[in-house]
Simulated assay, not measured.
Amino acid sequence: MRYALGFRLPPQNREWVRHDLTDAGWRGRILLRHLGLMAPVCAAFAALPAEGWARVAVALLVLVASTLTVMISADDLRRARLRQHGLEPPG
C-alpha cells in the first residue's frame, strides 16, 4: 500500500521495484494501482448529496481526468519512482 501511495520501499525491495517498473506490462501495473487508489475517492464523490446523475458525472469526471493524467505522465512517473529507489531509468 505504501508503494501505491508513492512512498519509498526498503532497500531489500529494490529488485522488485526494478522488475515492477521495467518489465513488460509496467504501464498496466501503474494504471491498475491508480485505479485501486481512485476507487474509494470516486465512491466518496458518488456519495455526496446531489441528484443521481450529478453524483455519477462527478465521480466519472474525477476517474477519467485522473486516469488520463496518469496515462500521459506514465514515463515521468516511472522515471521518478526509479530514481526514488536509487535505480537508473532505462534509456
Rank of each mutant, 00 (worst) to 15 (best):
R2L: 14
R2Y: 10
Y3L: 11
Y3P: 00
Y3F: 14
Y3E: 11
Y3H: 15
F7K: 09
F7C: 04
F7V: 04
R8K: 15
R8C: 03
L9D: 07
L9M: 15
P10N: 07
Q12R: 13
R14V: 06
W16H: 09
R18L: 13
H19R: 14
D20C: 03
L21F: 03
L21D: 00
T22E: 11
D23M: 12
D23S: 15
D23P: 02
G25Y: 05
G25N: 06
W26G: 06
R27T: 06
G28C: 10
R29S: 08
R29E: 06
I30H: 08
L31Y: 08
L32Y: 08
R33I: 01
H34Q: 12
H34R: 09
L35R: 13
L35K: 05
G36K: 08
L37I: 14
L37N: 12
P40A: 11
P40V: 11
P40H: 13
V41S: 04
C42K: 02
C42A: 15
C42N: 04
A43T: 12
A43D: 06
A43Q: 07
A44N: 03
F45M: 08
F45D: 01
P49Y: 02
P49E: 10
A50M: 11
E51H: 13
A54F: 06
R55K: 14
R55H: 01
R55G: 06
A57Y: 00
A57C: 03
V58C: 04
V58Y: 01
V58E: 01
A59Q: 02
L60Q: 07
V62D: 01
L63C: 10
T67Q: 02
T67S: 15
T67H: 03
T67Y: 02
T67R: 02
T69P: 00
T69E: 11
M71Y: 09
I72F: 11
I72S: 09
I72Y: 10
I72A: 15
A74Q: 11
A74N: 07
D75R: 14
D75F: 05
D75Q: 14
D76G: 13
R78Y: 00
R78C: 02
A80Y: 05
R83Q: 12
Q84F: 01
